[in-house]
């Protein structure tokens, strides 16, 4: 049994790392030598992972072009073997990888784009959340409003680069008019039905939403935000987030 496991591990290394296969391995295909057969297996392994990365990182693919993306994924696949049977889990370390991948150093915003695209991947496969029950909110007496704790389904990402604009420019039909010097960005990732959206958040909205995400009460979050951003408009923000599918529910903080 140990010998069998050893053989499997050796075979895995041959596929993943390119080491020699065991002399006990043989091929049943007469038309292919063992070396060729192993190459085919290896290329299928890499090809599947390459495709998984293509699906997870469509914006990076467009940014760097097919040839460079293939080169990049080849290096990534060599460095990060697949550890899940689900291919949609493959590619999580792309941002870390890009930070250190020498040929990508000229594009300093690339790691942030990778974080955003992986966040979109997570959002896409996340479990469905219920629609926000406005009718139930209407039943809450006004004096209880400060104690509301809102439930959200979204991610907020801050970048020193115009991340939202870069992502939006690479969606079908969009134009690429980006100046990297235009500054940072706060990207909101949400999902409406099965469509992942990325939109830009104002500092005030981000300030409020990040407090809501850590389950501050509506009263505390709004008070803290207004102190920093006097022009914060709670009603407009609530409506915008409702439309984007960010708000999913609420409960009342139990007051003592």
């Amino acid at each position: 049994m140990t010998e069998y496991t050893d053989e499997l591990n050796r075979f895995m290394r041959a596929i993943v790392q390119g080491t020699d296969v065991s002399p006990q391995i043989d091929t049943i295909y007469q038309n292919y030598s063992l070396d060729i057969a192993i190459e085919i297996y290896r290329n299928n392994y890499r090809g599947n992972l390459h495709d998984a990365l293509t699906g997870a990182y469509p914006v990076i693919l467009q940014l760097v072009g097919d040839e460079f993306f293939r080169y990049l994924t080849r290096s990534y696949i060599g460095q990060y073997p697949s550890v899940s049977a689900n291919l949609y889990h493959y590619g999580e370390q792309m941002s870390v990888f890009l930070q250190e991948f020498p040929p990508a150093q000229a594009l300093p915003y690339l790691p942030d784009v990778a974080v955003l695209e992986w966040t979109c991947q997570i959002a896409y496969f996340a479990t469905d959340e219920p629609n926000f029950a406005l009718d139930k909110l209407a039943l809450i007496p006004a004096e209880q409003h400060p104690n509301l704790i809102l439930h959200t389904a979204c991610h907020v990402l801050r970048s020193n680069y115009p991340l939202t604009a870069i992502w939006q420019a690479h969606q079908p039909g969009a134009d690429i008019q980006i100046n990297l010097a235009s500054g940072g960005s706060i990207a909101l990732v949400s999902r409406l039905a099965n469509i992942v959206q990325v939109s830009e958040l104002s500092e005030a909205d981000a300030c409020w939403l990040q407090r809501i995400q850590v389950r501050d009460t509506l009263g505390l979050a709004t008070e803290a935000t207004l102190a920093l951003h006097p022009d914060f408009n709670l009603q407009a923000t609530l409506l915008a987030l409702l439309k984007q599918g960010v708000l999913t529910g609420f409960h009342l903080e139990s007051t003592s």
Partner: peptide, 12 residues
């Protein structure tokens, strides 16, 4: 060398 849309990003 990257040859995609990154070339279209100003100051990119």
């Amino acid at each position: 060398l990257p040859k995609g849309t990154c070339n279209k990003i100003a100051n990119g």
